[in-house]
Design a protein around this nucleic acid. Structure first.
Lengths: 89, 89
DNA sequence: TGGACAGGCAAGTGAGGACTTGCGTATCGT
DNA sequence: ACGATACGCAAGTCCTCACTTGCCTGTCCA
């Protein structure tokens, strides 16, 4: 299992999580074009590598269908963050 | 205000937050020796620079008293993380 | 079945980050 | 007052990471 904290360190990866929260099950090209509308000018390969990191961190799941690869969000690893440094009961 | 996510990306900085949660208001030397017991062999300057990053992220507050500098934990910036990608109510 | 589309793989490059090194400053004890 | 302590500052080194470049594989449509 990869590092969840390092996965969240990059602003482009956080924007990808934002995008997947608005609309789940998006392909790589969909995510690329939608990132452009958010002001991120990332190439296809760059976005693909970011999704690799997010997948290794357990934050994104990949599902291959034909020539499309759909990506879905999984926010369960984020619970460990606030559970680790608990502010109140 | 610095980047909270980048501050959490380093394992040494996370260990510093762990240490401050166990015992608040520690000096730099206290944190250095306690990190050694956790297996982190970081120099004094390295720990000081890590605390700089944590302070800029709003996770650590510094208070100078004489020749000692006490560090205290502030976990309030962590709320923004789970609030951003909300899993359930 | 040829070509366009969607995506993967791997080496190379450039910038930022973690750490060191060396020196300087202020504070406390004796 | 002198040395030891606790810490800050700044330049330099090394290494990780994000991104590019180039090429390859597999899938759908006409």
């Amino acid at each position: 299992m990869g590092d969840v904290f390092k996965a969240l360190a990059d602003p482009t990866r956080r924007a990808l999580l934002d995008e997947l929260q608005e609309r789940d099950d998006q392909t790589l090209f969909e995510l690329c074009t939608r990132l452009l509308h958010r002001g991120f000018s990332s190439s296809r390969q760059a976005v693909s590598q970011h999704l690799d990191v997010l997948e290794q961190a357990g934050l994104v799941r990949r599902r291959r269908e034909g020539r499309y690869t759909f990506h879905s969000l999984d926010t369960s690893p984020l619970k460990a963050i606030t559970d680790r440094w608990r502010t109140g009961p």
